[in-house]
Amino acid sequence: MAILSLRDVSKRFGALTVAEAVSFDLAPGEALGIIGPNGAGKSTLFNLITGNLRPDKGSVSLDGRDITAETPMQRCASGIGRSFQIPQPFGHLSVYENLLVAARFGGGISAAEAPDYCMDLLRRTGLAALADRQAGGLPLLNRKRLELARAMATRPRVILLDEIAGGLTDAECGELVATIRDIHAEGTAILWIEHVLHALTAVVTRLMVLNFGRVLMIGVPDQVMAAPEVREIYLGIEA
């Protein structure tokens, strides 16, 4: 059974359709990449999955259980973690405290176990040396790492990554991809929006293309990237 399923999910803002009858399944432990031009409704789709937005129609289920009416807090506790496209740290808290909040609330981890759990995640994401630093003053790479580490601190079974490799140098991007591969190897399912294709295809086994809120195609990365309609819409190459 799929861990995450969307069935005919639609959302409109006035005359603008941001999601139209979106349906797909994410298998447990699978990594699915999402691509599409700017304004295709990719981040909106994440907001519909995490509960920051309610769909006008359709349903979202986790482990076959309908969670469409649940709040973001409930969905987080059920196992959906997310990172934000523009990093959203708790600026006045330390890096370590950013994770501690996530572990204690979303992760449901006890006060006794949370410190070690958070420090372990900080080491894995290369942030251990900055644990007591105020999160608001971090540079971009470390903010992105913090987004990933904080989302992981909620102990997700599905993690939603929103352009986490955007704006990084190749070396930085490679480091982040290695961490994400680790997370995936441990069995966490990944849904990943990304423009940096080589980062995405280093991890995901399937790609989904969104355009004007519709699913254009889902398939193996090579097939999808070779499809004429994808090349035309996404890469701007005339078929």
Binding site: T50, N52, T71, P72, M73, C76, A77, G81, R82, F84, Q88, P89, F90, G91, H92, L93, V101, A102, F105, G106, G107, G108, R150, A151, A153, T154
Partner: peptide, 11 residues
């Protein structure tokens, strides 16, 4: 600090 992010981590 950030109500939207707080909700996303279960607060």
């Amino acid at each position: 600090d950030n109500p939207v992010a707080a909700r996303s981590v279960g607060v």
